[in-house]
Computed example of a mutant assay.
Amino acid sequence: MYTITDKTATVKQLLILLLFLCISAPAFAQQLVTVEGEAQGTYYIIKYLSDDTTSLQHAIDSVFADIDRSLSLYKPGSLINRFNEGNTVRMDQHMQVVVTRSLQISKATVGAFDITVKPLVDAWGFGVHKPAVQKIPAADTLQHILEHVGYRYLQVRGQQLRKKKKGVEIDCNGIAQGYTSDVMARLLEQQGIKNYLVDVGGELCSKGHNQHGKIWTVGIERPAADDNAYPVQELLTLDNRAVTTSGNYRRFFDQGGTRFAHSIDPATGEALHSNIVSVTVVARDAITADGYDNALILMGVEKGVSFIRQHPEYGLEAYFIYKDENGKIQERFSPGFEKMLIR
Protein backbone atom coordinates (compact mmCIF):
# COMPACT_ATOMS: atom_id res chain seq x y z
CA MET A 1 0.00 0.00 0.00
CA TYR A 2 1.01 3.59 -0.27
CA THR A 3 2.28 5.91 2.36
CA ILE A 4 0.52 9.13 3.34
CA THR A 5 2.31 11.52 0.99
CA ASP A 6 1.43 14.70 -0.88
CA LYS A 7 -1.53 12.91 -2.41
CA THR A 8 -2.91 10.87 0.40
CA ALA A 9 -2.07 13.48 3.00
CA THR A 10 -5.14 15.29 1.83
CA VAL A 11 -7.39 12.26 2.22
CA LYS A 12 -10.16 14.39 3.71
CA GLN A 13 -9.63 17.42 1.50
CA LEU A 14 -12.16 16.28 -1.06
CA LEU A 15 -15.23 15.15 0.86
CA ILE A 16 -18.02 13.54 -1.13
CA LEU A 17 -21.12 15.42 -0.18
CA LEU A 18 -23.37 14.12 -2.98
CA LEU A 19 -25.42 17.26 -2.85
CA PHE A 20 -27.94 18.00 -5.57
CA LEU A 21 -27.65 20.80 -8.10
CA CYS A 22 -30.62 23.07 -8.40
CA ILE A 23 -31.79 21.77 -11.75
CA SER A 24 -34.90 19.81 -12.55
CA ALA A 25 -34.48 16.25 -13.73
CA PRO A 26 -36.27 12.98 -13.03
CA ALA A 27 -34.66 10.38 -10.78
CA PHE A 28 -32.95 7.45 -12.45
CA ALA A 29 -34.63 4.06 -12.34
CA GLN A 30 -31.28 2.41 -11.66
CA GLN A 31 -30.16 1.85 -8.11
CA LEU A 32 -27.26 3.54 -6.37
CA VAL A 33 -24.55 1.06 -5.41
CA THR A 34 -21.74 1.97 -3.02
CA VAL A 35 -18.51 0.04 -2.60
CA GLU A 36 -16.00 1.26 -0.04
CA GLY A 37 -12.99 0.12 1.91
CA GLU A 38 -9.30 0.74 2.53
CA ALA A 39 -6.42 0.36 0.11
CA GLN A 40 -3.11 2.05 -0.75
CA GLY A 41 -2.86 3.43 2.78
CA THR A 42 -6.11 5.36 2.47
CA TYR A 43 -9.86 4.98 1.90
CA TYR A 44 -11.85 4.50 -1.27
CA ILE A 45 -15.51 5.12 -2.03
CA ILE A 46 -17.03 4.14 -5.36
CA LYS A 47 -20.63 5.06 -6.13
CA TYR A 48 -22.46 4.10 -9.32
CA LEU A 49 -25.88 3.49 -10.81
CA SER A 50 -26.77 0.05 -12.11
CA ASP A 51 -29.64 -2.35 -12.72
CA ASP A 52 -27.38 -5.08 -11.36
CA THR A 53 -26.66 -4.59 -7.66
CA THR A 54 -24.23 -7.51 -7.50
CA SER A 55 -21.17 -6.23 -5.65
CA LEU A 56 -18.04 -5.45 -7.63
CA GLN A 57 -15.98 -5.63 -4.44
CA HIS A 58 -13.92 -8.62 -5.58
CA ALA A 59 -13.08 -7.04 -8.95
CA ILE A 60 -12.18 -3.74 -7.29
CA ASP A 61 -9.96 -5.41 -4.69
CA SER A 62 -8.24 -7.34 -7.48
CA VAL A 63 -7.38 -4.10 -9.30
CA PHE A 64 -5.92 -2.58 -6.14
CA ALA A 65 -3.80 -5.69 -5.63
CA ASP A 66 -2.52 -5.54 -9.23
CA ILE A 67 -1.53 -1.90 -8.88
CA ASP A 68 0.18 -2.58 -5.54
CA ARG A 69 2.26 -5.34 -7.13
CA SER A 70 3.39 -2.77 -9.64
CA LEU A 71 3.75 0.55 -7.82
CA SER A 72 3.68 0.05 -4.05
CA LEU A 73 6.88 0.98 -2.22
CA TYR A 74 5.52 -0.96 0.76
CA LYS A 75 5.14 -4.26 -1.06
CA PRO A 76 8.32 -6.38 -1.18
CA GLY A 77 9.08 -7.54 -4.69
CA SER A 78 6.88 -4.94 -6.37
CA LEU A 79 8.07 -3.74 -9.76
CA ILE A 80 8.93 -0.31 -8.41
CA ASN A 81 11.01 -1.79 -5.59
CA ARG A 82 12.78 -4.10 -8.01
CA PHE A 83 13.65 -1.12 -10.18
CA ASN A 84 14.88 0.94 -7.24
CA GLU A 85 17.05 -1.93 -6.05
CA GLY A 86 18.46 -2.69 -9.49
CA ASN A 87 19.04 -0.98 -12.80
CA THR A 88 16.26 -2.03 -15.19
CA VAL A 89 12.82 -3.55 -15.03
CA ARG A 90 10.27 -4.78 -17.53
CA MET A 91 7.21 -2.68 -16.79
CA ASP A 92 3.67 -3.96 -16.64
CA GLN A 93 0.81 -1.90 -18.05
CA HIS A 94 0.26 0.02 -14.79
CA MET A 95 3.87 1.10 -14.40
CA GLN A 96 4.25 1.90 -18.08
CA VAL A 97 1.25 4.24 -18.08
CA VAL A 98 2.26 5.97 -14.85
CA VAL A 99 5.93 6.39 -15.74
CA THR A 100 5.19 7.58 -19.27
CA ARG A 101 2.63 10.13 -18.06
CA SER A 102 4.97 11.24 -15.29
CA LEU A 103 7.77 11.93 -17.76
CA GLN A 104 5.39 13.90 -19.97
CA ILE A 105 4.34 16.09 -17.03
CA SER A 106 7.97 16.48 -15.95
CA LYS A 107 8.86 17.85 -19.38
CA ALA A 108 5.82 20.12 -19.48
CA THR A 109 6.63 21.60 -16.06
CA VAL A 110 10.40 21.70 -16.62
CA GLY A 111 10.96 19.25 -13.80
CA ALA A 112 8.62 20.74 -11.19
CA PHE A 113 7.04 17.28 -11.07
CA ASP A 114 9.60 14.50 -10.94
CA ILE A 115 9.18 10.91 -9.74
CA THR A 116 12.94 10.56 -9.08
CA VAL A 117 12.51 12.53 -5.83
CA LYS A 118 12.35 9.36 -3.72
CA PRO A 119 15.78 9.84 -2.07
CA LEU A 120 14.80 13.39 -1.16
CA VAL A 121 11.45 12.28 0.26
CA ASP A 122 13.31 9.72 2.38
CA ALA A 123 15.90 12.26 3.53
CA TRP A 124 13.19 14.61 4.79
CA GLY A 125 11.49 11.77 6.68
CA PHE A 126 8.37 11.53 4.55
CA GLY A 127 9.16 8.18 2.96
CA VAL A 128 8.44 4.55 3.78
CA HIS A 129 10.70 4.46 6.84
CA LYS A 130 9.72 7.23 9.24
CA PRO A 131 12.40 8.58 11.59
CA ALA A 132 11.64 9.01 15.29
CA VAL A 133 12.26 12.74 14.87
CA GLN A 134 12.05 14.61 11.59
CA LYS A 135 14.61 17.31 10.97
CA ILE A 136 16.13 19.33 8.16
CA PRO A 137 18.73 17.24 6.29
CA ALA A 138 22.27 18.59 6.17
CA ALA A 139 23.02 20.77 3.13
CA ASP A 140 25.79 18.46 1.93
CA THR A 141 23.43 15.48 2.21
CA LEU A 142 20.88 17.17 0.00
CA GLN A 143 23.55 18.22 -2.47
CA HIS A 144 24.75 14.64 -2.78
CA ILE A 145 21.21 13.34 -3.25
CA LEU A 146 20.48 15.93 -5.94
CA GLU A 147 23.22 14.38 -8.05
CA HIS A 148 20.89 11.39 -8.45
CA VAL A 149 17.61 13.26 -8.93
CA GLY A 150 16.28 14.14 -12.36
CA TYR A 151 13.68 12.66 -14.69
CA ARG A 152 16.25 12.77 -17.50
CA TYR A 153 18.06 9.93 -15.76
CA LEU A 154 15.17 7.62 -16.72
CA GLN A 155 14.94 5.91 -20.08
CA VAL A 156 11.88 4.14 -21.45
CA ARG A 157 12.24 1.78 -24.38
CA GLY A 158 9.08 -0.16 -25.04
CA GLN A 159 8.28 -1.92 -21.77
CA GLN A 160 11.77 -1.51 -20.37
CA LEU A 161 12.56 1.16 -17.80
CA ARG A 162 16.26 1.81 -17.31
CA LYS A 163 18.39 4.08 -15.15
CA LYS A 164 20.93 6.22 -16.92
CA LYS A 165 22.70 6.85 -13.63
CA LYS A 166 23.34 4.60 -10.67
CA GLY A 167 21.50 5.56 -7.48
CA VAL A 168 18.35 6.88 -9.17
CA GLU A 169 15.13 5.81 -7.43
CA ILE A 170 11.50 6.58 -8.17
CA ASP A 171 8.42 7.24 -6.06
CA CYS A 172 5.10 7.36 -7.93
CA ASN A 173 2.92 8.25 -4.92
CA GLY A 174 2.39 11.74 -6.33
CA ILE A 175 0.43 10.38 -9.29
CA ALA A 176 -0.48 6.74 -8.63
CA GLN A 177 -3.73 7.32 -6.77
CA GLY A 178 -5.05 9.54 -9.54
CA TYR A 179 -4.17 6.77 -11.97
CA THR A 180 -5.95 4.26 -9.73
CA SER A 181 -9.13 6.35 -9.83
CA ASP A 182 -8.99 6.33 -13.63
CA VAL A 183 -8.49 2.55 -13.67
CA MET A 184 -11.50 2.06 -11.41
CA ALA A 185 -13.56 4.26 -13.70
CA ARG A 186 -12.59 2.11 -16.68
CA LEU A 187 -13.53 -1.00 -14.73
CA LEU A 188 -17.01 0.42 -14.19
CA GLU A 189 -17.37 1.38 -17.83
CA GLN A 190 -16.36 -2.13 -18.88
CA GLN A 191 -19.35 -3.32 -16.84
CA GLY A 192 -21.62 -1.01 -18.85
CA ILE A 193 -21.88 1.55 -16.03
CA LYS A 194 -22.32 5.08 -17.32
CA ASN A 195 -22.97 7.04 -14.13
CA TYR A 196 -20.38 6.92 -11.35
CA LEU A 197 -18.20 8.78 -8.87
CA VAL A 198 -14.85 7.27 -7.88
CA ASP A 199 -12.88 8.56 -4.89
CA VAL A 200 -9.50 7.02 -4.02
CA GLY A 201 -8.02 8.90 -1.09
CA GLY A 202 -9.45 12.22 -2.24
CA GLU A 203 -8.57 11.79 -5.92
CA LEU A 204 -11.88 11.76 -7.75
CA CYS A 205 -13.29 11.22 -11.19
CA SER A 206 -16.89 11.13 -12.31
CA LYS A 207 -19.19 10.53 -15.22
CA GLY A 208 -22.86 11.15 -15.77
CA HIS A 209 -25.28 11.80 -12.93
CA ASN A 210 -26.25 10.59 -9.49
CA GLN A 211 -29.43 8.68 -8.62
CA HIS A 212 -31.46 11.90 -8.69
CA GLY A 213 -30.41 12.79 -12.20
CA LYS A 214 -28.11 15.56 -10.96
CA ILE A 215 -24.49 16.19 -11.86
CA TRP A 216 -22.18 14.78 -9.21
CA THR A 217 -21.13 17.44 -6.68
CA VAL A 218 -18.15 17.30 -4.31
CA GLY A 219 -16.90 19.49 -1.49
CA ILE A 220 -13.42 20.97 -1.13
CA GLU A 221 -12.05 21.51 2.34
CA ARG A 222 -11.01 25.08 3.04
CA PRO A 223 -8.91 25.12 6.23
CA ALA A 224 -8.97 27.99 8.67
CA ALA A 225 -5.91 30.06 9.50
CA ASP A 226 -5.05 27.99 12.59
CA ASP A 227 -5.16 24.75 10.54
CA ASN A 228 -7.43 23.18 13.14
CA ALA A 229 -10.76 24.99 12.98
CA TYR A 230 -13.82 23.55 11.30
CA PRO A 231 -13.34 23.70 7.54
CA VAL A 232 -15.52 25.83 5.32
CA GLN A 233 -16.68 24.05 2.17
CA GLU A 234 -16.51 25.09 -1.45
CA LEU A 235 -18.89 23.05 -3.62
CA LEU A 236 -17.76 21.92 -7.04
CA THR A 237 -19.73 20.34 -9.87
CA LEU A 238 -17.80 17.47 -11.37
CA ASP A 239 -19.17 16.89 -14.85
CA ASN A 240 -17.22 14.08 -16.57
CA ARG A 241 -14.00 15.41 -15.09
CA ALA A 242 -11.47 14.54 -12.40
CA VAL A 243 -10.33 16.55 -9.40
CA THR A 244 -7.34 16.07 -7.09
CA THR A 245 -5.69 18.06 -4.31
CA SER A 246 -2.15 18.50 -3.08
CA GLY A 247 -2.07 20.01 0.40
CA ASN A 248 0.54 20.94 2.94
CA TYR A 249 -1.29 21.46 6.22
CA ARG A 250 -1.69 17.83 7.30
CA ARG A 251 1.78 16.36 6.80
CA PHE A 252 4.65 18.51 7.96
CA PHE A 253 7.09 19.21 10.77
CA ASP A 254 8.22 22.44 12.38
CA GLN A 255 11.82 23.42 13.02
CA GLY A 256 13.33 26.77 13.88
CA GLY A 257 10.00 28.53 13.56
CA THR A 258 9.50 27.27 10.00
CA ARG A 259 7.02 24.67 8.84
CA PHE A 260 8.35 22.16 6.32
CA ALA A 261 5.76 20.22 4.32
CA HIS A 262 6.01 17.02 2.31
CA SER A 263 6.09 18.56 -1.16
CA ILE A 264 9.75 18.42 -2.22
CA ASP A 265 11.27 20.67 -4.86
CA PRO A 266 13.25 18.41 -7.24
CA ALA A 267 15.47 21.32 -8.28
CA THR A 268 16.65 22.44 -4.84
CA GLY A 269 15.90 19.41 -2.67
CA GLU A 270 14.02 21.65 -0.25
CA ALA A 271 10.76 20.70 1.43
CA LEU A 272 8.06 23.25 0.72
CA HIS A 273 7.94 26.06 3.29
CA SER A 274 5.92 28.70 1.47
CA ASN A 275 2.54 30.29 2.18
CA ILE A 276 0.70 27.80 -0.04
CA VAL A 277 -1.79 25.66 1.87
CA SER A 278 -3.18 23.56 -0.98
CA VAL A 279 -4.01 23.47 -4.64
CA THR A 280 -6.98 21.63 -6.14
CA VAL A 281 -6.81 20.75 -9.83
CA VAL A 282 -9.52 19.75 -12.29
CA ALA A 283 -8.53 17.94 -15.47
CA ARG A 284 -9.86 15.50 -18.04
CA ASP A 285 -8.61 12.53 -16.05
CA ALA A 286 -7.31 11.96 -12.54
CA ILE A 287 -3.77 10.95 -13.48
CA THR A 288 -3.31 14.34 -15.18
CA ALA A 289 -4.80 16.32 -12.31
CA ASP A 290 -2.79 14.31 -9.78
CA GLY A 291 0.51 14.89 -11.52
CA TYR A 292 0.03 18.59 -12.16
CA ASP A 293 -1.19 19.48 -8.67
CA ASN A 294 2.29 18.58 -7.37
CA ALA A 295 3.94 20.94 -9.83
CA LEU A 296 1.46 23.77 -9.29
CA ILE A 297 1.87 23.80 -5.51
CA LEU A 298 5.62 24.26 -6.00
CA MET A 299 5.11 26.97 -8.61
CA GLY A 300 2.98 29.02 -6.24
CA VAL A 301 -0.11 31.07 -6.94
CA GLU A 302 1.00 33.57 -9.56
CA LYS A 303 3.24 31.25 -11.56
CA GLY A 304 0.70 28.44 -11.24
CA VAL A 305 -2.23 30.46 -12.57
CA SER A 306 -0.02 31.87 -15.33
CA PHE A 307 1.07 28.34 -16.30
CA ILE A 308 -2.55 27.26 -16.68
CA ARG A 309 -3.39 30.29 -18.81
CA GLN A 310 -0.36 29.76 -21.03
CA HIS A 311 -1.13 26.07 -21.59
CA PRO A 312 -4.83 25.61 -22.35
CA GLU A 313 -3.90 22.43 -24.23
CA TYR A 314 -3.42 20.63 -20.90
CA GLY A 315 -7.06 21.22 -19.94
CA LEU A 316 -6.27 22.29 -16.37
CA GLU A 317 -8.16 24.46 -13.90
CA ALA A 318 -6.95 25.16 -10.37
CA TYR A 319 -7.98 26.54 -7.00
CA PHE A 320 -5.20 27.80 -4.70
CA ILE A 321 -5.56 28.28 -0.95
CA TYR A 322 -2.79 30.30 0.67
CA LYS A 323 -1.99 32.55 3.62
CA ASP A 324 -1.34 36.25 3.17
CA GLU A 325 1.30 38.21 5.08
CA ASN A 326 -1.07 38.46 8.05
CA GLY A 327 -1.68 34.72 8.17
CA LYS A 328 -5.21 35.05 6.83
CA ILE A 329 -6.52 32.36 4.50
CA GLN A 330 -6.98 33.60 0.94
CA GLU A 331 -8.02 31.90 -2.28
CA ARG A 332 -7.31 32.27 -5.97
CA PHE A 333 -9.00 30.53 -8.90
CA SER A 334 -8.19 30.01 -12.50
CA PRO A 335 -11.12 31.44 -14.52
CA GLY A 336 -12.53 28.06 -15.52
CA PHE A 337 -12.42 26.66 -12.00
CA GLU A 338 -14.51 29.44 -10.53
CA LYS A 339 -17.25 28.71 -13.07
CA MET A 340 -17.58 25.19 -11.68
CA LEU A 341 -18.19 26.35 -8.10
CA ILE A 342 -21.70 26.46 -6.64
CA ARG A 343 -22.29 29.78 -4.89
Results as ranks from 00 to 15, higher is better:
2 Y>H: 15
5 T>W: 15
8 T>S: 12
8 T>Q: 07
9 A>I: 11
12 K>F: 11
13 Q>V: 08
15 L>R: 02
15 L>W: 07
16 I>R: 14
16 I>E: 15
21 L>P: 10
35 V>R: 15
35 V>E: 12
37 G>H: 00
38 E>P: 12
46 I>Q: 05
47 K>S: 03
48 Y>T: 00
50 S>W: 14
54 T>R: 14
56 L>K: 14
59 A>Y: 14
59 A>M: 02
59 A>Q: 14
61 D>Q: 11
65 A>G: 03
67 I>H: 08
67 I>P: 07
69 R>P: 01
77 G>E: 10
79 L>I: 02
81 N>D: 05
84 N>C: 05
87 N>C: 06
99 V>F: 03
100 T>W: 04
101 R>E: 15
101 R>N: 13
102 S>W: 13
106 S>R: 04
109 T>L: 09
111 G>C: 01
112 A>R: 03
113 F>T: 03
118 K>V: 10
118 K>R: 09
120 L>C: 11
121 V>S: 11
121 V>G: 09
125 G>Q: 05
127 G>V: 00
131 P>G: 02
132 A>G: 07
132 A>N: 03
133 V>E: 10
133 V>L: 13
134 Q>G: 11
134 Q>Y: 14
138 A>S: 11
141 T>K: 05
142 L>E: 05
147 E>W: 05
150 G>I: 03
151 Y>M: 06
157 R>S: 15
157 R>W: 08
158 G>Y: 06
161 L>Y: 15
162 R>N: 08
165 K>H: 06
177 Q>L: 12
178 G>P: 05
179 Y>P: 00
185 A>C: 10
186 R>I: 00
187 L>H: 10
188 L>T: 01
189 E>L: 00
191 Q>S: 09
194 K>F: 01
195 N>G: 03
205 C>T: 15
207 K>H: 11
212 H>W: 12
214 K>R: 14
215 I>W: 14
216 W>A: 00
218 V>S: 13
218 V>L: 13
219 G>N: 03
221 E>S: 10
221 E>Y: 01
222 R>Y: 13
223 P>R: 02
223 P>C: 09
226 D>M: 04
226 D>C: 04
228 N>I: 04
230 Y>D: 15
230 Y>C: 08
254 D>A: 07
255 Q>R: 10
255 Q>I: 01
260 F>Q: 13
262 H>F: 10
263 S>R: 09
263 S>V: 15
264 I>Y: 10
270 E>Q: 12
271 A>Y: 07
274 S>P: 09
274 S>C: 06
278 S>I: 02
281 V>K: 10
285 D>N: 04
286 A>F: 14
287 I>S: 01
287 I>N: 02
289 A>H: 06
293 D>A: 11
296 L>F: 02
299 M>C: 14
299 M>D: 04
305 V>S: 02
308 I>T: 08
309 R>G: 15
311 H>N: 15
314 Y>T: 11
315 G>Q: 07
318 A>K: 03
319 Y>W: 12
319 Y>Q: 05
321 I>N: 15
322 Y>N: 08
324 D>R: 10
330 Q>V: 01
330 Q>E: 13
332 R>P: 04
335 P>V: 00
335 P>E: 00
335 P>L: 03
336 G>Q: 00
339 K>N: 09
339 K>D: 05
341 L>G: 03
342 I>K: 08
343 R>L: 05
